[in-house]
């Protein structure tokens, strides 16, 4: 079933070394898709193993990060489709865990940012994460998501605008929180961070 044509062990080793360096990034991307840390790690592990099994189809020297992100994303959406069939409630639970924050000590602004991100349409959120946080070029993000470059550009731009207005209006879902202060604390933090650098 699986193609086991003899492979150069050195090639496998090189592949593995590079794959291991990508694990932290796969975990971070998975976390933005699933929210829930445990589910995210399961997803990242599945993606890592899929990448390992498909290593013979990877061209060494090309962008392995983009390749593994594409695998992870496909894995996420195929699992999600399955759960949609099971129950629409699974979907709602997933939306809720997306914005769940485990650490009560987490800085407020980061908390608000997660909540606000959770309100964006998924395709806008993922485009913004890939380009704005994952360090991908628009072209790479387009390849990962399987859409045109222009589509990614417009999704990122719409996501940025929407995120800003959600943060400014304090329109994110939060009961009893200090809605409206998010943008101010993000600005203050950015100032602090930029002076540290």
């Amino acid at each position: 079933m699986i193609d086991r044509s003899p492979r150069d062990p050195a090639l496998d080793e090189a592949f593995k070394v590079e794959l291991v360096t990508l694990i932290p990034h796969l975990r971070a991307f998975a976390r933005t898709l699933c929210g829930d840390a445990t589910a995210a790690d399961d997803l990242a592990q599945d993606a890592m193993m899929k990448a390992w099994d498909a290593r013979s189809s990877f061209q060494m020297g090309t962008n392995m990060k983009a390749w593994t992100f594409m695998i992870l994303r496909n894995q996420f959406y195929s699992e999600k489709r399955r759960s949609w069939r099971q129950s629409q409630l699974d979907q709602e639970a997933a939306e809720r865990t997306l914005v769940a924050v485990d650490d009560p000590e987490a800085p407020v602004a980061l908390d608000e940012l997660r909540l606000s991100l959770g309100m964006l349409p998924p395709e806008q959120r993922e485009a913004l994460i890939l380009v704005g946080a994952g360090g991908f070029a628009y072209e790479e993000a387009a390849e990962i998501c399987g859409v045109a470059v222009g589509t990614v550009k417009s999704r990122v731009s719409r996501a940025r605008k929407a995120l800003q207005s959600i943060l400014e209006d304090g329109a994110y879902d939060r009961d009893g929180g200090a809605a409206g202060d998010a943008m101010r604390s993000i600005l203050a933090d950015a100032e602090r961070l930029s002076t540290v650098r």
Binding site: A28, A109, L128, L163, D189
Partner: peptide, 13 residues
């Protein structure tokens, strides 16, 4: 500022 925060959120993981 949002960009800085976004990267920070990702880099934390």
């Amino acid at each position: 500022a949002i960009g800085v925060r976004l990267r920070q959120m990702f880099d934390e993981v």
